[in-house]
Design a protein around this nucleic acid. Structure first.
Length: 429
RNA sequence: GGAGGGGUGGCAGAGCGGUUUAAUGCACUGGUCUUGAAAACCAGCGAGGGCGAAAGUCCUCCGAGAGUUCGAAUCUCUCCCCCUCCGCCA
């Protein structure tokens, strides 16, 4: 959420910045709303003040044994006027807040202008797409060809029978490779990058989703549970982990907080009908190792560079060719102020596909969550900055390994870094 | 699922219709003392918001929401969360 005071004092500037994100801030509407709010609030508070002082008078008079019926008579009129203005104020404040919850974060000045993927700025490339002297298979074919006992190592048909479209069953060596990836990533970030491992609920309440920005605007992308309470399956570990600091005032010594978390992620993919329908690129359920950092405001820009580097390190150790891009305004997510995407090379598609998204949300999520720290310089609670990035999406990493490490016989070479997690197995066949 | 007990400022913890402007302690900040520190003593110290150039001033907040009342941390209802015991259970 943006600072309401900034909305009031520099609406035009914000509107200009938000245009980069293809969002039109309705400055006239907000101005009008605020003018009415101001008027009603002044009236309401004056009436409250009057009620308070008269009530005190009654208390005093009663104690002194005086008659209060005279004062009491004037109170009923005051009460109804007060209730009416409080009701009006509530309506206006709710309207203002509802609008604000739907306004995206302001993009950083360094964010490239542009509408879609093509406008993203290439930052760097690592490795070289492999050359094959045989017809390249995609991961669906490779997975079907690997030995797995009963059924296929990657079995989309079985998943569609037991559940439906956009799910997958993994068996045997592929299931193991998948598990190895999660372990490998966790260990790397814990041992070498200074993250604390954390295990969180896979179900969260609506407030948590509002906090990180998935609600209210993206309700149709979430899996909502049946039942009395507003519970949702997490779309990413970002939600529970970032909400670790909800409603807290952290001590300066607790920052930065760095968490790494391996969870399943559940997404309705409501906006993705018809795209990536083949294979496990876009599923309703996938696993991800997520990096989350909570920092002091002045540290978040550096932290994003570091965090992105931590995610890149996974790709490098797995020897997967990738590139890093800075998302343009049109591609930037709702809550982000700046995002690097890491894209891995997929031989079957002859292009780079997103495998990690690393973002700085500055104080946008913190304000929604009321996540603060006590700044020793001011002695006051101030909003923290939040960041996160995939390190990495496990399903897509599996796809990348199957495709990039395939050989002419239909086998798959296991990247060196994963072999300790695979009992030394060097090749799946 | 059943029966109880609770949710109060950064933390602990009193208050259970009207001088509550929420006691007290801890923590924190400043000062006195000290070669320095500790201790002791003195003082300050919650959050959010409105108006205002500022000084300041007003409003809101005692888990959440609704209600009773001239007036609610305090009474009533609903919900959420935590603790103890019993039952069930991986």
């Amino acid at each position: 959420m943006l600072d309401p005071r900034r909305i009031r004092s520099e609406a035009e500037t914000l509107a200009g910045k938000l245009a980069k994100k293809k969002f039109t801030l309705d400055v006239a509407y907000l101005g009008d709303l605020d003018a009415r709010r101001k008027e009603i609030q002044l009236a309401a508070e004056a009436l409250q003040n009057e009620r308070n002082s008269r009530s005190k008078e009654i208390g005093k008079a009663k104690q002194e044994g005086r008659d209060v019926s005279e004062i009491l008579r004037t109170m009923s009129d005051l009460k109804s006027r007060l209730e009416e203005s409080q009701r009006q104020l509530q309506v206006l404040q709710d309207e203002f807040r509802d609008y604000l919850l739907g306004v995206p974060n302001v993009p950083a000045d360094e964010v490239p202008e542009g509408d879609g993927e093509a406008a993203n700025r290439l930052e760097s490339e690592w490795g070289h797409p492999p050359q094959f002297d045989f017809p390249v298979k995609d991961h669906v074919e490779i997975g079907a060809g690997l030995a797995a006992g009963t059924g296929e190592a990657l079995d989309f048909a079985a998943a569609s029978r037991m559940t439906g479209a956009r799910f997958v069953v993994m068996q045997g060596p592929v299931a193991r490779l998948h598990r190895a990836l999660g372990q490998f990533m966790l260990d790397l970030h814990i041992r070498e990058h200074g993250y604390t491992e954390i295990n969180v609920p896979f179900i969260v309440n609506a407030d948590s989703l509002v906090g990180t920005g998935q609600l209210p605007k993206f309700a149709e992308d979430q899996f909502k549970l049946q039942g009395k309470q507003d519970f949702y399956l997490i779309p990413t570990a970002e939600v529970p982990v970032t909400n670790m600091v909800r409603d807290r005032i952290l001590d300066a010594s607790e920052l930065p907080a760095r968490w790494v978390c391996h969870t399943p992620c559940f997404r309705q993919e409501a906006g993705g009908y018809g795209v990536d329908t083949r294979g496990m690129i876009r599923q309703h359920q996938f696993e991800k190792v997520e990096l989350v950092q909570i920092t002091r405001p002045e540290d978040s820009a550096t932290a994003l560079e570091e965090l992105t580097g931590h995610a890149e390190r996974v790709l490098q150790l797995l020897e997967l060719p990738y590139r890093k891009v800075a998302l343009c305004g049109g591609d930037l997510g709702f809550s982000a102020n700046f995002t690097y995407d890491l894209e891995v090379w997929l031989p079957s598609q002859q292009c780079y596909r997103e495998i990690s998204s690393c973002s700085n949300f500055d104080e946008f999520q913190a304000r929604r969550m009321q996540a603060r720290w006590r700044n020793p310089a001011s002695g006051k609670p101030e909003f923290v900055h939040t960041l996160n990035g995939s390190g990495l999406a496990i399903g897509r990493t599996l796809v990348a390994i199957l495709e990039n490490c395939q050989d002419a016989e239909g086998g798959v070479g296991v990247p060196r870094a994963l072999r300790p997690y695979m009992d030394g197995v060097e090749r799946l066949e």
